[in-house]
Amino acid sequence: MRVKGETVRRNKRQGGYDWSFLWLAVAVVATGSMMLVASDSVPERIPSYVSWTPETIAAAYSGDDFRGMLLAKRCEHCHGAEGFSDRGSTPNLAGIDRLTIWKELEDFRSRKRTSRVMEPIAESLSSRDVADLVAYYARLPVFADLQDNRNFPQARPDPSHAGMASHLVSFGDGGRGIPPCQSCHGPVAYRPGVPSLANQNGEYVLSQLEAFAGGTRANDINMPMRTISSLLTEDERQALAEYYGAGLGLQPGSSSGAR
Protein backbone atom coordinates (compact mmCIF):
# COMPACT_ATOMS: atom_id res chain seq x y z
CA MET A 1 0.00 0.00 0.00
CA ARG A 2 1.25 3.42 -0.88
CA VAL A 3 1.53 6.47 1.30
CA LYS A 4 -0.82 9.30 0.39
CA GLY A 5 1.94 11.72 -0.57
CA GLU A 6 3.24 9.37 -3.24
CA THR A 7 -0.12 9.08 -4.94
CA VAL A 8 -0.34 12.85 -5.16
CA ARG A 9 3.07 13.03 -6.78
CA ARG A 10 2.05 10.37 -9.30
CA ASN A 11 -1.03 12.34 -10.22
CA LYS A 12 1.13 15.34 -10.92
CA ARG A 13 3.21 13.25 -13.29
CA GLN A 14 0.03 12.05 -14.88
CA GLY A 15 -0.85 15.70 -15.37
CA GLY A 16 2.40 16.06 -17.31
CA TYR A 17 1.19 13.47 -19.79
CA ASP A 18 -2.08 15.26 -20.41
CA TRP A 19 -0.33 18.51 -20.98
CA SER A 20 1.96 17.08 -23.67
CA PHE A 21 -0.88 15.42 -25.51
CA LEU A 22 -2.67 18.74 -25.52
CA TRP A 23 0.36 20.19 -27.24
CA LEU A 24 0.34 17.43 -29.78
CA ALA A 25 -3.32 17.95 -30.47
CA VAL A 26 -2.78 21.68 -30.92
CA ALA A 27 0.13 21.06 -33.30
CA VAL A 28 -1.82 18.58 -35.40
CA VAL A 29 -4.90 20.77 -35.63
CA ALA A 30 -2.81 23.83 -36.51
CA THR A 31 -0.93 22.04 -39.27
CA GLY A 32 -4.13 20.51 -40.52
CA SER A 33 -5.89 23.81 -40.79
CA MET A 34 -2.85 25.32 -42.50
CA MET A 35 -3.13 22.62 -45.12
CA LEU A 36 -6.77 23.40 -45.83
CA VAL A 37 -6.93 25.29 -49.08
CA ALA A 38 -8.13 28.75 -48.30
CA SER A 39 -10.53 29.55 -51.12
CA ASP A 40 -11.94 32.99 -51.58
CA SER A 41 -15.64 32.89 -52.25
CA VAL A 42 -16.58 34.18 -55.69
CA PRO A 43 -20.09 33.83 -57.06
CA GLU A 44 -20.04 30.86 -59.36
CA ARG A 45 -20.97 31.02 -63.03
CA ILE A 46 -23.25 28.13 -63.87
CA PRO A 47 -23.58 27.25 -67.57
CA SER A 48 -26.73 25.16 -67.19
CA TYR A 49 -28.73 23.71 -64.33
CA VAL A 50 -28.97 20.40 -66.16
CA SER A 51 -26.68 17.55 -65.14
CA TRP A 52 -26.85 14.06 -66.56
CA THR A 53 -27.90 12.20 -63.47
CA PRO A 54 -30.09 9.10 -63.85
CA GLU A 55 -33.05 11.15 -62.58
CA THR A 56 -32.58 13.76 -65.30
CA ILE A 57 -32.31 11.12 -67.98
CA ALA A 58 -35.42 9.38 -66.69
CA ALA A 59 -37.31 12.68 -66.75
CA ALA A 60 -36.20 13.39 -70.32
CA TYR A 61 -37.42 9.95 -71.38
CA SER A 62 -40.77 10.14 -69.60
CA GLY A 63 -42.71 11.91 -72.37
CA ASP A 64 -45.69 10.85 -74.45
CA ASP A 65 -45.07 11.43 -78.14
CA PHE A 66 -48.75 11.61 -79.10
CA ARG A 67 -49.38 14.51 -76.77
CA GLY A 68 -46.10 15.95 -78.04
CA MET A 69 -47.42 15.84 -81.59
CA LEU A 70 -50.42 17.95 -80.58
CA LEU A 71 -48.25 20.44 -78.73
CA ALA A 72 -45.86 20.67 -81.64
CA LYS A 73 -48.48 22.52 -83.68
CA ARG A 74 -47.18 25.60 -81.88
CA CYS A 75 -43.70 24.98 -83.16
CA GLU A 76 -44.57 24.05 -86.74
CA HIS A 77 -44.53 27.58 -88.02
CA CYS A 78 -40.81 27.86 -87.40
CA HIS A 79 -39.45 24.32 -86.98
CA GLY A 80 -41.52 22.84 -89.82
CA ALA A 81 -44.38 20.35 -89.93
CA GLU A 82 -41.93 17.45 -90.12
CA GLY A 83 -39.26 18.92 -87.93
CA PHE A 84 -37.37 20.46 -90.82
CA SER A 85 -37.39 24.24 -90.94
CA ASP A 86 -37.79 26.24 -94.13
CA ARG A 87 -35.36 28.84 -92.78
CA GLY A 88 -31.66 28.11 -92.52
CA SER A 89 -31.32 30.07 -89.29
CA THR A 90 -33.87 27.93 -87.42
CA PRO A 91 -32.69 24.49 -86.28
CA ASN A 92 -34.18 21.26 -87.58
CA LEU A 93 -35.49 19.17 -84.72
CA ALA A 94 -36.42 15.94 -86.49
CA GLY A 95 -34.61 12.95 -85.07
CA ILE A 96 -32.59 14.99 -82.57
CA ASP A 97 -32.12 12.87 -79.47
CA ARG A 98 -34.31 13.41 -76.44
CA LEU A 99 -31.59 14.55 -74.09
CA THR A 100 -30.46 17.39 -76.36
CA ILE A 101 -33.91 18.87 -77.00
CA TRP A 102 -34.76 18.47 -73.34
CA LYS A 103 -31.61 20.25 -72.23
CA GLU A 104 -31.98 23.09 -74.71
CA LEU A 105 -35.59 23.71 -73.69
CA GLU A 106 -34.61 23.62 -70.00
CA ASP A 107 -31.79 26.06 -70.70
CA PHE A 108 -34.13 28.43 -72.55
CA ARG A 109 -36.52 28.15 -69.62
CA SER A 110 -33.84 29.05 -67.10
CA ARG A 111 -32.35 31.67 -69.47
CA LYS A 112 -29.01 29.93 -69.44
CA ARG A 113 -29.28 29.91 -73.21
CA THR A 114 -30.56 33.18 -74.58
CA SER A 115 -32.85 33.56 -77.55
CA ARG A 116 -35.43 36.29 -77.88
CA VAL A 117 -37.71 33.89 -79.74
CA MET A 118 -37.31 30.68 -77.76
CA GLU A 119 -37.13 31.98 -74.17
CA PRO A 120 -40.81 33.05 -73.90
CA ILE A 121 -41.97 29.94 -75.78
CA ALA A 122 -40.01 27.61 -73.53
CA GLU A 123 -41.16 29.47 -70.43
CA SER A 124 -44.78 28.87 -71.35
CA LEU A 125 -44.22 25.11 -71.40
CA SER A 126 -44.66 22.88 -68.35
CA SER A 127 -42.13 20.19 -67.49
CA ARG A 128 -44.54 17.62 -68.85
CA ASP A 129 -44.95 19.55 -72.12
CA VAL A 130 -41.19 19.59 -72.54
CA ALA A 131 -40.89 15.84 -72.04
CA ASP A 132 -43.76 15.19 -74.48
CA LEU A 133 -42.37 17.49 -77.18
CA VAL A 134 -38.98 15.85 -76.80
CA ALA A 135 -40.51 12.40 -77.29
CA TYR A 136 -42.26 13.57 -80.43
CA TYR A 137 -39.32 15.28 -82.13
CA ALA A 138 -36.89 12.48 -81.33
CA ARG A 139 -39.19 10.08 -83.12
CA LEU A 140 -39.61 12.05 -86.35
CA PRO A 141 -37.95 10.44 -89.37
CA VAL A 142 -35.00 12.18 -90.97
CA PHE A 143 -35.10 10.82 -94.50
CA ALA A 144 -35.84 13.21 -97.32
CA ASP A 145 -39.45 14.10 -97.98
CA LEU A 146 -39.77 16.30 -101.01
CA GLN A 147 -43.26 17.41 -100.11
CA ASP A 148 -42.36 20.16 -97.66
CA ASN A 149 -40.18 23.10 -98.49
CA ARG A 150 -37.32 22.34 -96.13
CA ASN A 151 -34.08 24.22 -96.29
CA PHE A 152 -31.99 21.06 -95.86
CA PRO A 153 -29.79 19.90 -97.52
CA GLN A 154 -28.04 22.81 -99.15
CA ALA A 155 -25.52 22.81 -102.00
CA ARG A 156 -22.24 20.99 -101.44
CA PRO A 157 -19.28 23.16 -100.44
CA ASP A 158 -16.38 23.62 -102.83
CA PRO A 159 -13.74 20.86 -102.63
CA SER A 160 -11.24 22.80 -100.53
CA HIS A 161 -13.86 23.60 -97.89
CA ALA A 162 -15.28 20.08 -98.04
CA GLY A 163 -11.82 18.59 -97.52
CA MET A 164 -10.98 20.92 -94.64
CA ALA A 165 -14.26 20.19 -92.90
CA SER A 166 -14.21 16.46 -93.39
CA HIS A 167 -10.72 16.31 -91.93
CA LEU A 168 -11.83 18.19 -88.83
CA VAL A 169 -14.94 16.05 -88.50
CA SER A 170 -13.07 12.75 -88.83
CA PHE A 171 -9.71 13.51 -87.24
CA GLY A 172 -9.84 16.91 -85.60
CA ASP A 173 -6.45 18.55 -85.28
CA GLY A 174 -4.15 16.93 -82.76
CA GLY A 175 -1.58 19.70 -83.07
CA ARG A 176 -4.00 22.32 -81.83
CA GLY A 177 -5.89 19.96 -79.55
CA ILE A 178 -9.16 19.96 -81.49
CA PRO A 179 -10.97 16.64 -81.07
CA PRO A 180 -12.84 15.24 -84.08
CA CYS A 181 -16.43 16.51 -84.18
CA GLN A 182 -17.70 13.00 -84.87
CA SER A 183 -16.29 11.67 -81.59
CA CYS A 184 -18.98 13.63 -79.74
CA HIS A 185 -21.59 14.49 -82.38
CA GLY A 186 -21.65 11.06 -83.98
CA PRO A 187 -21.90 8.88 -85.86
CA VAL A 188 -18.68 7.51 -84.36
CA ALA A 189 -19.66 8.17 -80.76
CA TYR A 190 -22.30 10.12 -78.92
CA ARG A 191 -22.46 11.69 -75.51
CA PRO A 192 -25.53 12.73 -73.54
CA GLY A 193 -26.87 16.07 -74.68
CA VAL A 194 -24.74 16.27 -77.79
CA PRO A 195 -26.93 16.59 -80.87
CA SER A 196 -26.33 14.86 -84.15
CA LEU A 197 -25.47 17.54 -86.70
CA ALA A 198 -26.09 15.27 -89.67
CA ASN A 199 -29.42 16.88 -90.50
CA GLN A 200 -28.79 20.38 -89.28
CA ASN A 201 -29.03 23.58 -91.31
CA GLY A 202 -25.66 25.06 -92.22
CA GLU A 203 -26.65 28.61 -91.40
CA TYR A 204 -27.74 27.55 -87.91
CA VAL A 205 -24.55 25.52 -87.34
CA LEU A 206 -22.46 28.55 -88.26
CA SER A 207 -24.46 30.86 -86.01
CA GLN A 208 -23.98 28.48 -83.05
CA LEU A 209 -20.25 28.00 -83.67
CA GLU A 210 -19.83 31.77 -83.72
CA ALA A 211 -21.96 32.17 -80.62
CA PHE A 212 -19.85 29.60 -78.75
CA ALA A 213 -16.59 31.22 -79.88
CA GLY A 214 -17.84 34.68 -78.92
CA GLY A 215 -19.26 33.46 -75.62
CA THR A 216 -22.81 34.61 -76.41
CA ARG A 217 -23.90 30.99 -76.12
CA ALA A 218 -22.39 29.60 -72.93
CA ASN A 219 -24.66 26.73 -71.90
CA ASP A 220 -22.30 23.86 -72.71
CA ILE A 221 -21.48 21.92 -69.53
CA ASN A 222 -17.73 22.10 -68.76
CA MET A 223 -17.20 24.29 -71.83
CA PRO A 224 -16.31 21.83 -74.61
CA MET A 225 -17.89 23.84 -77.44
CA ARG A 226 -16.70 27.24 -76.27
CA THR A 227 -13.18 25.83 -76.11
CA ILE A 228 -13.28 24.00 -79.45
CA SER A 229 -15.02 26.72 -81.41
CA SER A 230 -12.57 29.40 -80.30
CA LEU A 231 -9.70 27.20 -81.51
CA LEU A 232 -11.21 27.07 -85.01
CA THR A 233 -10.51 29.76 -87.60
CA GLU A 234 -13.39 31.67 -89.16
CA ASP A 235 -12.82 29.85 -92.44
CA GLU A 236 -12.97 26.47 -90.69
CA ARG A 237 -16.24 27.35 -88.97
CA GLN A 238 -17.66 28.35 -92.35
CA ALA A 239 -16.43 25.12 -93.94
CA LEU A 240 -17.88 22.96 -91.15
CA ALA A 241 -21.24 24.70 -91.42
CA GLU A 242 -21.32 24.14 -95.20
CA TYR A 243 -20.32 20.51 -94.70
CA TYR A 244 -23.07 19.71 -92.21
CA GLY A 245 -25.60 21.88 -94.05
CA ALA A 246 -25.07 19.83 -97.21
CA GLY A 247 -25.85 16.60 -95.39
CA LEU A 248 -22.26 15.30 -95.62
CA GLY A 249 -22.25 14.57 -91.91
CA LEU A 250 -24.11 11.40 -92.72
CA GLN A 251 -21.28 9.84 -94.60
CA PRO A 252 -18.80 8.43 -92.08
CA GLY A 253 -20.94 5.45 -91.22
CA SER A 254 -24.54 5.40 -90.19
CA SER A 255 -27.47 5.73 -92.57
CA SER A 256 -29.40 8.16 -90.44
CA GLY A 257 -28.73 10.72 -87.79
CA ALA A 258 -31.48 9.36 -85.56
CA ARG A 259 -30.78 7.25 -82.55
Binding site: V42, E44, I46, P47, S48, S51, W52, T53, N222
Partner: peptide, 13 residues
Protein backbone atom coordinates in the same frame (compact mmCIF):
# COMPACT_ATOMS: atom_id res chain seq x y z
CA UNK B 1 -21.76 14.87 -63.09
CA UNK B 2 -22.22 18.09 -61.17
CA UNK B 3 -18.83 19.79 -61.43
CA UNK B 4 -20.46 22.76 -63.18
CA UNK B 5 -23.09 23.38 -60.51
CA UNK B 6 -21.07 23.99 -57.34
CA UNK B 7 -17.70 23.50 -55.74
CA UNK B 8 -14.19 24.34 -56.78
CA UNK B 9 -14.50 23.19 -60.40
CA UNK B 10 -17.17 25.67 -61.48
CA UNK B 11 -16.21 27.47 -64.69
CA UNK B 12 -15.00 30.71 -63.23
CA UNK B 13 -12.73 28.99 -60.72
Amino acid sequence: LTLHLAGEFVENN
